[in-house]
């Protein structure tokens, strides 16, 4: 894996599609879209739709969004420690863990989409962090979890890896041992991010050697 790139390299912006391997889907109807659109071509869904669907204030995006106190102090300490360790490797990425009881008909993926976009951004720090946020949403009422990522980190993640990681901790989620489950998630996230980094570096190298510039699309 590579290290910091030099300043000129880092200032350069790449097209997200050059790296992304996960499909773009409509949060409303789950239709796959080929290009970024303002409204879903199938159902017309947009950010306005979701605000209407959830017409209340979105919580502030924090590390722990846990109104019912599922994460004890010991859990938080362990998770914080794991996140610190992760931050030494991937300083840009922020994690948020939300445990909430949703209605059965509410799709956690859509709810996560709403949270990341509707939650207020009131300061430059949040403005910088929001696109690099990975939100793990735990629906305690229905034993469901979802992962939603900000635009900046999204292209580098292989969502299949999140699935495998979360399934590995299935028993913990069912037991409502969310502290241990999230800890497993964070520890596994290092691997997911590492894989993304390696893939990115390979593609950057290919891009240089073949002088492709912004060519090449990836899903």
């Amino acid at each position: 894996m590579s290290k910091r790139r030099d300043e000129s390299e880092r200032r350069k912006k790449y097209r997200a599609g050059s790296f992304a391997i996960s499909a773009m889907t409509c949060p409303g109807c789950r239709a796959i879209i080929e290009e970024p659109v303002e409204n879903c071509p199938r159902c017309g869904y947009s950010g306005h739709s979701v605000v209407k669907k959830f017409p209340f204030a979105a919580p502030t995006i924090e590390r722990y969004i846990d109104p019912n106190g599922h994460f004890g102090p010991a859990d938080r300490e362990l998770i914080d420690e794991a996140l610190s360790e992760l931050a030494t490797r991937f300083p840009q990425v922020r994690f948020s863990f939300c445990v909430i009881d949703l209605e059965q008909e509410t799709d956690p993926r859509e709810f996560g989409f709403w949270m990341l976009n509707a939650s207020p951004v009131n300061d430059p720090v949040e403005e910088k962090l929001r696109p690099w946020t990975i939100l793990l949403l735990i629906d305690g009422a229905n034993d469901r979890v979802s992962v939603t990522s900000g635009y900046a980190i999204e292209p580098f993640l292989n969502e299949e890896r999140w699935v495998a990681l979360l399934q590995f901790s299935g028993r913990l989620f069912l037991r409502r041992d969310y502290g241990a489950a999230v800890l497993n998630f964070v520890e596994g996230a290092v691997g997911v991010l590492s894989e993304g980094a390696e893939r990115t570096e390979r593609r950057l190298s290919l891009g240089k050697s073949e002088n492709l510039g912004e060519k090449g699309r990836w899903k």
Binding site: M1, S2, K3, R4, R5, E9, R10, R11, K12, K13, Y14, R15, A16, G17, S18, F19, A20, M24, C26, P27, I33, P36, V37, E38, N39, C40, Y45, S46, G47, H48, T88, R89, F90, P91, Q92, G112, F113, L116, N117, V121, R130, P131, T133, T148, S149, G150, Y151, A152, I153, E154, P155, F156, L193, S194, G196, A197, T200, L204
Partner: peptide, 18 residues
């Protein structure tokens, strides 16, 4: 330490952040 490169985001559905 690894820094992912900056990308022009795939902004969609009028959503500003994700």
């Amino acid at each position: 330490e690894y820094y992912f490169p900056a990308t022009s985001p795939r902004k969609r559905f009028l959503a500003p952040w994700s």
